[in-house]
C-alpha cells in the first residue's frame, strides 16, 4: 500500500534547512563579535534557541496531555511523548552549551546558580515523566498517568524562566523576554538569534512529526478482520493500537 505523503510534503524540510543555513550565516559571519565575551558569545545563537524550543516542547507536552485527558485519543499521547523526548534533548543541549560558554566567561564549567539548578531539575522531571510512561503495559493507562504527570511537570517551566528574576543569580537576566520592553541587544545579533529560533522551531516540528510517525508504527497492532465466506483470513494493521 503506498504511503500517504505527509501534509506539507517537502515544504517543511526545505524551510528548516533554509532557516538553519540562514541562522548559521548570520550567527557565524554577519553578527558582530561581542566586545566583552569574544567568540564564546556566538554559542548564544544555539544555546538560547535550544532553551526556548525546549520550553515550547514542554508546553506541547502540557497541551497534548490535557488533550489526551479530554479526548482519550492516543494520537495526543504520542505527540506528548515525542515532544517530551525532544524537550529533554534540547534541555541537555542547552545545559551542555551553557557549560562550554561558562568556562571561558565565568571561569567555571558549573556553578550552583538558580537558573542552572532549576534547568537541571526540569531535565530530571521530564526524564521521570518518560519513566512514568513505562509504569503500565496498557497504553491508555500509561497515557493517563503520564498525562497527569505531564500537566504537573510543566509547573517547573515558569520556575526556570523566572529564576533569574526571583533570585540574585550569576546567570544574566532575560535579554529578549525580560520585564522591560525593548531588549538591550544589537539589532544584527537579534536577527541572528531570531533566525536560530525559527530554525530550531522548524527542525523541532520535523523531528516530532517523524517521531510520532515512528511511535504510531511501533504501536500498530495486528487486528483480524472477519473473512468473507470461503475466503482466506485477512490480517490488517490498525495504526496506533486503537484510540
Amino acid at each position: 500500500m503506498p504511503r500517504t505523503p505527509a501534509p506539507g510534503g517537502a515544504l517543511l524540510p526545505t524551510a528548516a534547512v533554509t532557516a538553519s543555513g540562514a541562522a548559521l550565516v548570520l550567527a557565524l559571519l554577519v553578527a558582530p563579535e561581542d566586545a566583552v565575551q569574544g567568540p564564546a558569545q556566538r554559542l548564544m545563537y544555539v544555546h538560547v534557541p535550544a532553551a526556548w524550543v525546549a520550553y515550547l516542547a514542554f508546553a506541547a507536552v502540557l497541551v497534548c496531555s490535557v488533550a489526551y485527558l479530554v479526548r482519550r485519543d492516543l494520537r495526543f499521547d504520542r505527540c506528548a511523548q515525542a515532544a517530551a523526548e525532544l524537550g529533554i534533548g534540547l534541555t541537555a543541549l542547552a545545559i551542555g552549551l551553557g557549560m562550554l560558554w561558562g568556562r571561558p566567561v565565568w571561569g567555571v564549567w558549573w556553578t550552583w546558580d538558580a537558573r542552572l539548578v532549576t534547568t537541571t531539575v526540569l531535565l530530571l522531571v521530564y526524564v521521570a515523566y518518560l519513566g512514568v510512561r513505562r509504569m503500565a503495559d496498557d497504553p491508555h493507562v500509561a497515557a493517563r498517568r503520564s498525562a497527569a504527570v505531564g500537566v504537573v511537570a510543566f509547573l517547573n517551566v515558569p520556575v526556570v524562566h523566572f529564576s533569574v528574576v526571583w533570585w540574585r543569580t550569576l546567570h544574566q537576566p532575560p535579554t529578549v523576554l525580560g520585564p522591560e520592553g525593548s531588549p538591550p541587544i544589537d539589532p544584527v545579533m537579534a536577527w541572528a538569534l531570531a533566525a536560530g529560533v525559527v530554525a530550531f522551531t522548524l527542525l523541532a516540528v520535523l523531528v516530532v512529526r517523524r517521531r510520532v510517525a515512528g511511535l504510531r508504527a511501533a504501536g500498530a497492532e495486528p487486528a483480524a478482520v472477519p473473512p468473507a465466506a470461503g475466503a482466506a483470513p485477512v490480517i490488517t494493521v490498525v495504526p496506533g493500537g486503537g484510540r
Binding site: T118, L122, V127, R134, A148, V149, N156
Partner: peptide, 23 residues
C-alpha cells in the same frame, strides 16, 4: 495516588516529588 495505582516505578517518585517542592 500514582504510586498506589502501580507497584512499579516507585523509584521515580523522588525525581518527581523533590522538584515539585522546589518553590
Amino acid at each position: 495516588a500514582l504510586l498506589a495505582a502501580s507497584a512499579r516505578g516507585a523509584g521515580l517518585l523522588a525525581a518527581l516529588v523533590l522538584p515539585a517542592g522546589l518553590p
